[in-house]
């Protein structure tokens, strides 16, 4: 449902409105039919305006492993590997000071839209 359908919906709603009022004001024998048609066209238009496309399912955020040096401030973040756990000593040494390193965190960072409630 893109912008085209929204414009089409707006046009249909407007047209339906005109037809409805024509039906309500005319002395034509089938005026109620015109009014009814106007309502249907209007509702079709509104359906097109309000109908949005289904929210795409976002893939879950990647799980990352945070490795820190036990002596200096060196920190490395990489993708989670099966077998990683928090506080696990890793084989590699710190590239800055050659000290041992430990997994300090395995986590995800959720990107959720902040919905604010004024309460």
């Amino acid at each position: 449902m893109g912008i085209v359908s929204k414009i089409l919906g707006l046009a249909l709603a407007g047209m339906g409105f005109v037809v409805l009022f024509y039906g309500m004001s005319t002395t034509d024998a089938l005026s109620f039919l015109w009014s009814f048609m106007g309502l249907i066209i209007m509702s079709l238009g509104f359906a097109l305006i309000t109908g949005g496309k289904q929210a795409e399912k976002k893939p879950p955020p990647p799980t990352v492993t945070e490795i820190r040096c036990s002596s200096c401030d060196f920190k490395e973040i990489r993708d989670f590997k099966k077998g990683d756990y928090v506080l696990m000593p890793v084989e590699e040494t710190c590239p800055k000071c050659q000290s041992s390193m430990t997994i300090e965190g395995v986590y995800i960072v959720r990107e959720e839209p902040e919905v604010k409630y004024n309460v």
């Binding site: 039906g23 309500m24 004001s25 005319t26 002395t27 034509d28 024998a29 089938l30 005026s31 109620f32």
Partner: peptide, 12 residues
């Protein structure tokens, strides 16, 4: 005919 008026179709 107008909506709400009376005529030969209003019974419908």
């Amino acid at each position: 005919m107008q909506l709400g008026g009376t005529n030969e179709y209003s019974w419908i």
